Each structure stands twice: as structure tokens, then as C-alpha cells.
Amino acid sequence: MSVRRLLRHPWTGLLRHPWTAFLGRRTARLVLSLGVVLTASFVMIRLIPGDPVRAALGVDAAPGLVAARRHRLGLEEPFLSQYRHYLDGLVHGDLGTSLVTGTPVAELVRTRLPATLEIAGLAFLVTLAVALPCGLLAAIRTRDGRHPRTELAFTAVTAGLAGVPDFVLAAGLTALLAVGLPLLPVAGAAGIESFVLPVLALSLAPTAVLVRIVRVEALKVLNEDYMRTARGKRLPSARRYLRHAAPNMATAALTVAGSLLPALIAGTVLVEKVFARPGIGSAMAQSVAAQDYPVVQAMVLVLGTTVLLAGLLVDLLLAVLDPRSAIRES
């Protein structure tokens, strides 16, 4: 699209611009996904058997007290009426009140969310910082069938780590680094040392998955014609790999990293429970056991929204790195 035409018809040109279409599709997808998450957070907690009011007040609570609490919370209303009230509350910024503690859920989210974002964000950065260079180095060392023992060891270690659940890694790291070798604190959120174990437990499996994919993509890049040309010109190794190979494999690596984000954020639920960290995940685990409807709904909504926004940021970053992808989807 020419600049002259865009200046002559700015709104028409802007609406037809590939980036506008790309952002419009991503925004529509985000809104639709948020609607699904919002509805799922409301419905699924109500599928859990039991009476949340009875669970909150105790089994010895008087029937009249239980009935009055249910009426005050609107739990006796039809399902659609409860859903309408839930949406109305969200529009006005009201996430409800905890059935167990009586505190506003919005306050609970405000105090708990930063702790979850800290360990999830650090785990994601560690995953990228380790997987990208290690995958490239593994591809360089094992290119064209060289060093088969290194390739075998790489495959065995990464496959083993990728298949271990987060809570098993958390328990194993605790036993090794906090109990067997008392180098790090077992639990809590005091000091920089307290981040090491939960971040490791969250990032080890995604790192193992991503580093394998980075190696495969790097092997493809290293066999491209322009890489052969660079080797033929005897360019320095650092220039060949960092300037030519790394940027061309970054798009695929970031795409996979974006797909690993939901599992990484969901893993905070168990990891925070294991390490007694005061985050969204531990609060949601406690609330599910107590059938605390408002808290569980809010936590699922917050975690789901975080995943969706992180995915949107990854899509935008990929589009910036490779503008052709945005134009191609138009």
C-alpha cells in the first residue's frame, strides 16, 4: 500500500492495512477466549459435589443459618440468574467475597498475584535463557552426525526431565538441595534464595522440551544454503551462529515457548503448594478443597487471563520479528 494512498484515504487505508487485520483478529480471539474462561470458571466449580455453605460454616451449623447464608449469597436462584449476577459483579469490579474468610476476593487477588507472576515470569525467562543457547550449542556439536555419544546423552537427559511432573521435581529438589544438602530454604518467600527451588521446579521440564525443539530447528538452519555460504566465506564462528543462525531459529523457538506458557503458569498451583508460597496457585488449591466458589472462580479467571495475555504478547513479538507472518494471515 502506497504512502500517498494511505494519506489520501487514511481510515480506509488503515482498516485495510495487514497489521490492522492482524491486531483485529488477535483481539477478537482474546475476547472470545476470555468469555470461555469466564464461563468455565463459573460452571466448573458448581460441578463439584457438596454444599459450599455447609463446608464454610461447618457440619454442625444450624439449618436455618445455612439457609440464610445460601439466600444471602443467591445460591438458591436459578443457574442463569446466578451467572447474570456474576457477570454484573465483574463489570463493576466485584469478584465477590470469600465464603470461608469473609474477605473481598479482589483484595486476595491483589496480594497473591504478584508472588505468582514473580516465579512464573522468572521460570519463563530461565527457560528461554537456558534452552536457546543450549539448543544451538547441541546442534552445532551434533551437526552431520558428529559426536553421537553427546547426542545420545542430550536426548536421554532432556527426555527424562521433560517427562517428570512439576510436583515430583519440586519434591526431589527439596530433598536434594534443602534437606540432603541444606543449601536453600525448604519453603517460604523470604529472600532471593527462596526463589531458586520453585523456579527450578517450574522451569526444568519446559526447558527440556524447548531445548530439544531448538536443537532440531537449529540443525535445519545450519544446513541452509546461506549458512554454507557463510562457512565458505570463512566468517567468524560467533558471527555465523549469532547473526545468521540464532535469529532464523528464534521464531520457531518463541512459538513453542508461547505454547509452553499455559502449562508453566498452571504448574504454579502445585509448586506454590509444595513450597508454601503465598500465591494464586496455593490459594486456589485451598479454595477448591473448601469449595469456596468466589475465590476459585476469581483465581481461575485471573490465571486464565494471564495465560491469554501472555500468549497475545508472544504473538505480537513473533509478528514484529517476522512481519511476513502477520501479512500472510491477512
Rank of each mutant, 00 (worst) to 15 (best):
L65A: 15
A68M: 05
R70V: 10
R70H: 12
H71C: 02
H71T: 14
L73R: 13
L73S: 08
L73H: 08
G74E: 12
G74R: 03
E76V: 00
E77A: 15
E77R: 15
E77D: 15
E77L: 15
P78S: 07
F79Y: 14
L80M: 13
S81C: 02
R84W: 14
L87H: 11
L87T: 06
G89E: 10
G96M: 04
G96Q: 04
S98K: 08
S98F: 00
L99P: 02
L99G: 01
G102M: 07
T103V: 13
P104M: 03
V105N: 05
A106E: 13
E107M: 08
L108G: 04
R110D: 06
T111Y: 09
R112S: 14
R112T: 13
R112P: 06
L113P: 00
P114N: 10
A115E: 10
A115N: 14
L117C: 08
E118G: 00
I119L: 13
I119E: 01
A120C: 02
A120L: 03
G121N: 06
L122R: 06
L122Q: 07
A123K: 01
F124Q: 12
L125K: 00
T127N: 07
T127I: 01
A129G: 11
A129S: 13
V130Y: 01
V130S: 03
L132P: 05
P133W: 01
G135L: 09
A138W: 03
R141M: 12
R141H: 07
R146P: 10
H147C: 07
H147A: 14
H147S: 13
H147I: 04
P148E: 07
R149M: 11
T150L: 15
